[in-house]
């Protein structure tokens, strides 16, 4: 890593056309595609009241009806409109995904930055804790904890968020250890910046761009975790998520394919979109600082 590598002697204009071309070759279409998919699901969830007049919780007499003009996605065993349940379910799934990802990314970033920046004993302790969390069978623990403390949106968000930060912490720590040795950090120290200012003003912005990728994958993974919990019957029946729809629909797999197919598609589309977006971001974001390297 610290080999006496050649010095970067090329002015930016020599390298820029090449990196731009390289990024173009790396299929930006995937990233754009991902962003579109994510946008569609977010808009669907946000604009649910405008896209359907039906109430996702209102029972109807027309049970297990096939998709029709009145009910584009059909109805379930209690006569509820599946389109409405999928659209409103998006609010729950995406919301849980975003909030628990925010918790895990925030926690992971803080722990990773502190560990990577200060090093030494603090780093050792934090990393052992991180590893302890990382080797936990995440979903199993989530199932146990949620069954103990009870289901509910807040509980789900907290449990998923608090169980998924280790990956982010490790990525951030590694990144900070690299940035720590860039000359601009030494220069900032000599410009009088103390540890807090170094971390907040000089290191964090250079980590953030890296985190975008990780964050979009975290959202996807949190949505999946929530679906898993709901599928096991640990979801909040008051706020049906896609996972809960799947769980309820699986009883009627033989008679009513639409009960599982539409929430399943929504889930797959969102997770695929977030993954593609993550790929696109990792390909296009320019390296914050050139390392030799």
């Amino acid at each position: 890593m610290t080999l006496a590598s050649p010095l970067p002697t090329r002015p930016a204009w020599v390298t820029r056309p090449l990196t731009v071309l390289a990024a173009v070759r790396r299929q930006p279409a995937a990233g754009v595609m991902g962003a579109l998919l994510v946008l569609v699901t977010i808009l669907g969830a946000l604009l649910a009241p405008f896209l359907t007049a039906a109430d996702p919780l209102a029972l109807g007499s027309d049970t297990l009806a096939e998709p029709s003009w009145a009910h584009p996605f059909g109805t379930d065993d209690l006569g509820r409109d599946v389109l409405a349940r999928v659209l409103y379910g998006g609010r729950v799934s995406l919301g849980i995904g975003l909030f628990s990802a925010a918790i895990s990314v925030g926690l992971g970033m803080t722990i990773g930055m502190v560990a990577g920046f200060f090093g030494g004993l603090l780093d050792e302790v934090l990393m052992r804790i991180t590893e302890a969390f990382q080797i936990l069978p995440k979903l199993l623990v989530a199932v146990v904890v949620v069954s103990l403390i009870g289901s509910g949106l807040l509980n789900e968000i907290l449990v998923i968020g608090l169980l998924s930060w280790p990956a982010t912490a490790r990525i951030v720590r590694g990144r900070v250890q690299v940035i720590r040795h860039e000359e601009f950090i030494a220069a900032a120290e000599m410009s009088g910046a103390g540890p807090v200012r170094l971390l907040a003003r000089h290191i964090a912005p250079n980590v953030l761009s890296f985190l975008l990728v990780s964050a979009s994958l975290q959202v996807a993974s949190a949505i999946m975790s929530e679906s898993f919990l709901s599928f096991l019957g640990l979801g909040d029946p008051e706020h049906p998520s896609w996972g809960l729809l799947l769980q309820q629909g699986q009883l009627f797999l033989q008679q009513a394919w639409w009960l599982t197919t539409f929430p399943g598609l929504a889930l797959a589309m969102t997770v695929l979109g977030l993954n593609l977006l993550g790929d696109g971001l990792s390909g296009s974001h320019a390296a914050p600082a050139r390392s030799r390297r």
Binding site: L7, E182, F184, A187, A188, H202, N206, P288, A289, S291
Partner: peptide, 12 residues
């Protein structure tokens, strides 16, 4: 510093 690329914070 030696390296004009790594000695300036790219975000500032």
């Amino acid at each position: 510093f030696q390296d004009p690329y790594s000695s300036l914070n790219p975000r500032l």
